[in-house]
């Protein structure tokens, strides 16, 4: 047995070594292509002041009576992600039905729907935010629209997978007793998919709250705007408190959303 084993496994072993070598070559090629001349030589010093700032956050920024403080910006971030998720959870339903294979007899219909969703999904939200800023001006509304449109791509894909997985029994039963298309949708399809839809919308909400924190970097409202100002002015203690605020907000939202999702399903 000892003699037969190597000859059997030699092929895959050689193949694995070749794949490994190819990966290393790829990595070296990628590494050699990057030019790191931009690294600042006083990096260590900067690190020191960052550490100083992060260990002494600017607590005064948490609440300021006259406005533009941490809490208000975090609230705006939260509001942007709630509205963005709500809009996309609404808008993606027709897309989801378009892309589900069991909702249309012609395969090209659902295939085209899936392709459109892929294109929406790979279109980055930051670029969408910039385009909406040009349209409606900088501010939270542009962020809401960017999240609302971008989230359609992922939500509609997940929704359409849910629709494709529904139990055909109720639908056939309703069709057999003469229900109209709308009645089939209302009483056979929707009751089966809605808990899953809600769960996915909450999941997307968790992603959106993270995205909403960076939308401000390009001027689309939320906590990102004061963060980029603080970074540009090297105000590390303020950067520290903002990052702390973001981390706490995201953790709280994750906990609430996870709890809700467990309750729904």
């Amino acid at each position: 047995m000892n003699q037969t084993l190597p000859s059997k496994t030699r092929g895959p072993i050689i193949r694995n070594w070749l794949i490994g070598a190819a990966l290393i070559v790829l990595f070296i090629w990628a590494l050699s292509g990057l030019h790191f001349e931009g690294i600042q030589e006083y990096g260590a010093q900067v690190m020191g002041s960052i550490w100083e700032g992060f260990t002494h956050p600017d607590w005064g920024y948490v609440y300021m009576p006259e406005g533009e403080d941490l809490l208000r910006n975090l609230l705006e971030t939260l509001v942007i992600s709630i509205l963005g998720t709500f809009i996309s959870a609404f808008l993606c339903i027709p897309f989801a039905f378009w892309a589900s294979a069991n909702m249309s007899r012609i395969r090209a219909v659902s295939a085209s729907g899936k392709f459109v969703l892929t294109v929406i999904r790979v279109f980055p939200e930051i670029i969408m935010a910039i385009l909406f800023i040009v349209a409606v001006g900088p501010g939270a509304f542009a962020g809401v629209l960017a999240l609302g449109v971008h989230s359609i791509g992922m939500l509609a894909k997940l929704y359409s997978e849910t629709i494709e997985a529904v139990d055909e029994g109720p639908r056939e039963a309703l069709l057999a007793c003469g229900a109209s298309k709308m009645q089939v949708l209302r009483f056979a399809i929707l009751p089966q998919v809605i808990p899953q839809f809600l769960s996915y919308a909450l999941y997307r909400f968790e992603i959106n709250i993270r995205s909403a924190t960076v939308l401000g970097l390009v001027g689309a409202g939320g906590i990102g705007t004061p963060l980029i100002f603080a970074l540009q002015t090297r105000d590390w203690s303020r950067v520290g408190i903002i990052l702390l605020g973001i981390v706490i907000l995201v953790i709280i939202i994750d906990l609430i959303s996870g709890w809700l999702r467990r309750r729904i399903i």
């Binding site: 030019h35 931009g38 690294i39 970097l217 963060l227 970074l231 950067v239």
Partner: peptide
């Protein structure tokens, strides 16, 4: 956010 912070620390670049 990581990128924005590292740009502030190490300067603009890849």
């Amino acid at each position: 956010l990581f990128a924005a912070i590292f740009v502030a620390v190490f300067g603009i670049g890849a």
